[in-house]
């Protein structure tokens, strides 16, 4: 930026660097420290680096436009900072304040410096204002995107966590389903169960729906598809944990479960599974 006003800005930034730093820290540090996630030295260092890339970009540009390529390093710096803060649990406001806190100290300096030229003062202030606004909004955008990717990743992890296939006995698997079943989740459930059947060579799989709050036609269909796919591979499924109200819904919905073995509890299903695999459960009274 070789205009006199731009030069004034660069001049201010480099001359009052330490003062700006201190004032900015005064405004921002309380927020950052309250989180207990950082130290004053770290904050100071972060802001110093920001001022460096900021001044650097300023020197290389003619127009104060954060979208121009000269500002790429600044955007990259802020993107990293925002993503980091999103992971650490800062709020979007606290993150954007990193940029906005620079406004007041800078404006005070500009006013002292350009006291004799009101027209220049208002123009530079306006431009700086716009620039810092767009940089601030940029941090919010990156923050939002980072949060979304965190949520997406957590959803995936949750999906995997919520579909554990356990081996109960030699040749017997159990899939305790918990929570609402939708199409995406059912596909994951189905795949992990069938995959586990191949891996373990288990001939019987018990699908326990005690933890599934509601069974609608779609869920019932998904269950039936899983049972059908397992049968094609050569394994039998038993559905257990059917509560009275779910039994009622199934009948009212007209879902045909006649070809599927159903048991009210996982224990009952396990007993049936043991019998089918040739084992049996003996209780003391039975042996006496």
């Amino acid at each position: 930026m070789d205009t006199p006003k731009g030069a004034a800005l660069i001049e201010i930034l480099s001359r009052h660097r330490d003062a700006l730093l201190t004032e900015w820290l005064d405004q921002h540090l309380s927020i950052a420290l309250r989180r207990g996630l950082t130290t004053e030295a770290e904050m100071r260092e972060q802001f110093r680096s920001f001022l460096n890339v900021f001044t650097d970009a300023l020197q290389r540009s003619d127009i104060l436009d954060a979208n121009r390529p000269e500002w790429e390093p600044v955007r990259a710096f802020l993107a990293e900072m925002s993503a980091h803060r999103a992971r650490q649990g800062y709020t979007p406001v606290e993150t954007a304040t990193f940029v906005f806190s620079l406004k007041q100290p800078l404006y005070v300096r500009l006013r002292t410096e350009l006291d004799d030229d009101p027209a220049a003062l208002s123009e530079v202030s306006w431009n700086v204002n716009l620039l810092l606004d767009s940089l601030g909004l940029f941090t919010t955008e990156v923050f939002q995107r980072s949060r979304e990717s965190i949520i997406a990743r957590q959803q995936e992890e949750l999906l995997e966590l919520s579909t554990p296939v356990v081996q109960l006995w030699e040749g017997i698997l159990a899939l305790p389903l918990i929570g609402t079943l939708d199409s995406a989740r059912t596909q994951v459930v189905m795949e992990s169960l069938l995959q586990k059947i191949v891996e373990t060579g288990a001939g019987i799989a018990i699908i326990d729906i005690t933890g599934v709050p509601t069974v609608d036609t779609l869920v019932a269909q998904h269950l039936l598809k899983t049972v059908a796919a397992a049968r094609l591979m050569g394994a039998d499924c038993i559905i257990s944990g059917i509560r009275p109200q779910i039994a009622q819904t199934i009948v009212h919905l007209g879902v045909d479960l006649t070809n599927v073995t159903t048991k009210s509890t996982l224990a009952d299903a396990f007993t049936v599974a043991l019998q089918r695999t040739g084992s049996s459960v003996l209780t003391p009274s039975a042996t006496a």
Partner: peptide, 29 residues
């Protein structure tokens, strides 16, 4: 015997359940 899980899922989705056919997990079974 030995139908792969992805094949089984696809056949069910296709509407083909091979109802009259016996199945097993592997050659031994």
């Amino acid at each position: 015997v030995g139908m792969q899980p992805s094949v089984a899922i696809t056949l069910v989705e296709l509407g083909l359940t091979l109802s009259g056919v016996s199945t097993a997990l592997n050659v031994e079974k």
